[in-house]
């Protein structure tokens, strides 16, 4: 499966467009991490626990998008974009979407 933020795949041609595919996940912050990050907030700097949390969550939304693309017979997802929205206080939705295509 080729994932790309471009609208084409160099050296290949798109033979059919299969429409938009998406994958998303909603994550809440963990209380333990929150307390530690609260302390970290006093001195500033990177909140590694959150960086990891969001990194893992994006990986999962990409995985789900790929599954959806695979199930409709695509072999590439082009023009992939990420979006983030906060669903509730302390919970965030991470969305990945793109256009599923068949390339040859």
């Amino acid at each position: 499966m080729i994932l790309s933020t471009l609208e084409y795949v160099p050296g290949k041609t798109v033979t059919s467009h299969l429409g938009i595919v998406q994958g998303s996940t909603v994550r809440a912050k963990n209380v333990g991490r929150d307390i530690l990050s609260g302390l970290k907030n006093l001195v500033g700097g990177e909140l590694k626990a959150y960086t990891e949390l969001l990194g893992d969550a994006r990986e999962e939304s990409l995985q789900r998008m790929q599954q959806q693309a695979q199930s409709i017979g695509a072999n590439a997802v082009l023009n992939v974009r990420f979006a983030t929205s906060s669903v509730a206080q302390g919970a965030a939705e991470l969305l990945a979407y793109g256009t599923a295509v068949v390339v040859e």
Binding site: L3, S4, V9, N41, G44, G45, L47, T51, L54, G55
Partner: peptide
Amino acid sequence: DTRMVRGNAVISVDY
């Protein structure tokens, strides 16, 4: 060859 890459960082301010 093309592959998607990404990086993220969460940074907070001090008091």
